[in-house]
Write a protein that binds this DNA or RNA. Sequence first.
DNA 1: GATCTCTGTCTATCAGTCATAGATAATCTA
DNA 2: TAGATTATCTATGACTGATAGACAGAGATC
Lengths: 221, 221
Amino acid sequence: MTDRQRSTTEKNPIATPDRRSRRHLAKRARIIDNAWSLARRDGLTGISLRDLADSVDLRQPSLYAYFESKLDLYDAMFEDGQRQLLDRCQAREPLPDPLDELVAVVEDLVRFSSEDVVRHQLLFQRTIPDFEPSAAAMEPARQFVDLMSERLRASRLEDPGDVDLFSAIVSGLAHQQVANDPGGDRWVLLARRVVEVLVADADQRSARPTKKPTTTRRVTK
Amino acid sequence: MTDRQRSTTEKNPIATPDRRSRRHLAKRARIIDNAWSLARRDGLTGISLRDLADSVDLRQPSLYAYFESKLDLYDAMFEDGQRQLLDRCQAREPLPDPLDELVAVVEDLVRFSSEDVVRHQLLFQRTIPDFEPSAAAMEPARQFVDLMSERLRASRLEDPGDVDLFSAIVSGLAHQQVANDPGGDRWVLLARRVVEVLVADADQRSARPTKKPTTTRRVTK
DNA sequence: GATCTCTGTCTATCAGTCATAGATAATCTA
DNA sequence: TAGATTATCTATGACTGATAGACAGAGATC
């Protein structure tokens, strides 16, 4: 009835819960874990399918039973990484004050990025030629954006320009933290300040709507 | 005298102005230009030395007369790209108002990044495994940092925290512009606002030195 | 003029990459 | 037990960057 196409004999009674056996999925997850390890060692584009196969006691072509291509492996890693980020933000008990909560999410994200440089590369930089995350892999990323939007609304950051600016600042904090102090907190600690300034500025400009911003001092050319 | 080592006969009267002939250097520059083209087509890590050699009517091994390795080619491209950025900022007539000038440099940088995605990748993201720019290649980058520091000082942004925050915001603007609106100006247009807010905040906090920032409302845990 | 050296380029080859084809063993289903 | 499916293998193909060694031509030196 409401099944997928079952072109052939229609005999198969199995519900194909995930189209693959439990064992298959478990091994697939293990391969992804090892791929992260190799990526940390050899770089994201430096993963060798031979090394990866060896690490799970397989020969290289056998990996194609789990992934259609190397790009498909990256896709699985992308989804895995996005879900890690989402899980982390959802696991934490939300703080009562909206501004505190917004700061906390920003700190989560910046810390998350700087913990694992190659994960940050795969998730937030377009570093692999021809790689574009599939819709399925983007799903946790979409949920994270929803979560973030909600926190922004709670602190009255709703104007599109405000949101663009906010996204730029957060990605910039993460980028600098990863590039210049990986594993540290030099830019993590700026999260509170940046959020406070941004919220204050947004409040101020919504109070005097569309008026010329007070600080502008244009020089007549 | 102040020469490099000249192990053998010491007869050579030529000053070896750059250790290579003018013709050699010109061809090297042409190879770098073509490498940028290939990178835009196939991705930064997708450059094939065979394709690159073909594009300048050479066979693949002949490239090794111009670059020691593929990483050395990336190093040359890095230096080339950094010099492009420096040249652009220095070519522009400086604006009289320090704040206007600071905004202009930020806009230059964000526009520069979004003009060429792979150039931005090579210059500002660590995307190629094992690639680390040489000291020589970093020289124009160092000069750009000097230039930027000077502009920051002129707008009284000197505190290390201010500078960290500024660098994060600028790189974030560039990143979002490249990722979400390449070639456009959606984040370029935020440069003025962000600079003004940042300068105002820095002035405010230097007026009330070391006092607890007014907007902080910490929740007791 | 004969010789030497250096430069630029070539062909041939190597070890490594991802990917595909086709065979075989192991497991599950009827 | 017979048949189908799954998991894996070996062998191979078309690429990749890198190295070895030969060779032709230009200038300098004797």
